[in-house]
Design a protein around this nucleic acid. Structure first.
Lengths: 263, 263
DNA sequence: CCTCCCTTATTACTCCGACATATTATCATA
DNA sequence: TATGATAATATGTCGGAGTAATAAGGGAGG
């Protein structure tokens, strides 16, 4: 009798079925996490523009097929990352781009989930070309013997596997992580976690479009030698050219890169 | 009946009262936001160390005098910022410091809510001494006439009010923000929002402990002139010395600063 | 005609209680 | 001892009810 009091036919008791539907990233991902991912990518891709007001909680949650609790928790995540802000009566609206925590690893991942904005990629590489040489300089001054050993191991792994394999790319990240860690600057380490992730995405782009155009080992060796020799200026210089070359490779693999024409 | 089952005397139904307590940002602070602030500062201050497991949802929520929903939403915020991670049956545990999004403005505010860690302050200034000169260099290359006008206005405001007033400090932030914005690099703008906030806290420290030891205007004028003249190298150099001087001032105002003795 | 205050309606916010799910820990068995 | 099934437990999800805050509209006063 009371089974169909609403008459909506469908709905009401199918929680687990569509939970994995959205993105289907498999295990370890909760419903509200998947929801945050879904909404986050929608915002980053411009599907919801800054200033837009999202549908009300009740309507939108039902539309997405989730409970209000799960929806609200997802919104809290987006709020925590500066993407949206909610106020009673006014609703939940997308904030201006300046308010977004673009360096948050998860936000970065959402930004690269779709077609990445070339301007933003340029900005990230520019930031990288500032941070990493400075970190290499500090690392040359402060590195311990343990740091050098880790870097050498990572370099060896890079040589064994190439950048065409996942193991090789992982070793590459380990190498850069080791440098950041050796810099003794926690803020830079955190920043590298963000930039490194972004670089990881672009590296995949490089692989996708062309064969590896350059052997990256010599550049890395120069950086390693300078840090091992405790030569700050050489380390900064070597890292600077390494990033520049990586930028060049990435640029050539992205079709319509805005060739820095401005005054 | 159920009003005093725990016997904690206080609490239970005074949500708006403590909302404005924390930093006093005024209105707009909800219960789960205040909770996140409370737990966030507790974690940043070391009250909950990495690896620690928080009490269960039901127990902890009751202990804090809030519903499970509000508690969970607060935890989602902390999770979004990389402070904690939850898994069924395993509980919610504090993650390692490397996982924390230390550059998140809110996390930064939590870090400076208590006694700030001098090591971390040093790291932030070090990062600032890398970012801001680079931003000034880019600004000198890319600034528009509008950017120059904004910077000039901010500089004038700095002159009128001094750094002893809130209006003066606000103008100072406007000046630096204008430079970052003129750099045309979105990533650096976002980063400045974080660092700028941190610098703001330390500036308050400076004011607290001593009178203003130095007139900051000349340094700023040098930076402004170089950017207005589109001289990248001069802009970077001027900004570099500006940050160094600010660092020196801050260092002298914090009692036991580790005097950088290492090799 | 404009300004200011008050009323009202809408929306997010908070709470509650139940069930589902995932993971760990335990125990029986080979 | 090793390994599998089993049970215990904490997080995850759900639905609904009531509260509080705020934006919008309307009325009184200038």
């Amino acid at each position: 009798m009371e089974t169909s009091e609403t008459g909506d036919a469908t709905t009401k008791k199918r929680p687990s079925a569509k939970a994995t539907a959205g993105t289907g990233h498999g295990p370890g991902r909760r419903l509200h996490g998947a929801l945050a991912h879904k909404l986050g990518t929608a915002i980053l891709s411009g599907q919801y523009a800054p200033g837009d007001v999202l549908p009300g909680e009740v309507v939108f949650a039902e539309e997405l097929g989730v409970s209000r609790s799960a929806y609200r928790e997802a919104i809290q995540v987006l709020t925590a990352k500066g993407l949206v802000a909610s106020r009673p009566k006014a609703g939940t609206r997308v904030l201006a781009r300046e308010r977004w925590n673009l360096l948050d690893p998860e936000v970065l991942a959402w930004a690269f989930a779709g077609e990445p904005d070339v301007r933003f990629v340029r900005d990230l590489f520019e930031l990288r070309s500032v941070i990493e040489p400075a970190a290499a300089r500090l690392a040359a001054m402060r590195r311990s013997k343990d740091d050098v050993r880790i870097m050498r191991d990572a370099l060896a792994a890079m040589r064994r596997h190439t950048l065409t394999t996942e193991a090789g790319r992982s070793a590459d990240r380990d190498f850069h992580d080791a440098i950041l860690r050796a810099s003794g600057n926690q803020a830079m380490v955190v920043l590298s976690a963000s930039i490194g992730a972004a670089v990881h995405w672009t590296t995949q782009f490089k692989q996708r479009s062309r064969e590896l155009p350059r052997n990256p080992i010599p550049d890395h060796v120069r950086v390693f030698d300078a840090i091992a020799a405790s030569d700050p200026d050489a380390a900064a210089e070597a890292m600077g050219s390494l990033v520049d070359l990586a930028l060049e490779d990435t640029r050539s693999s992205m079709e319509d890169w805005p060739r820095e024409k401005r005054a």
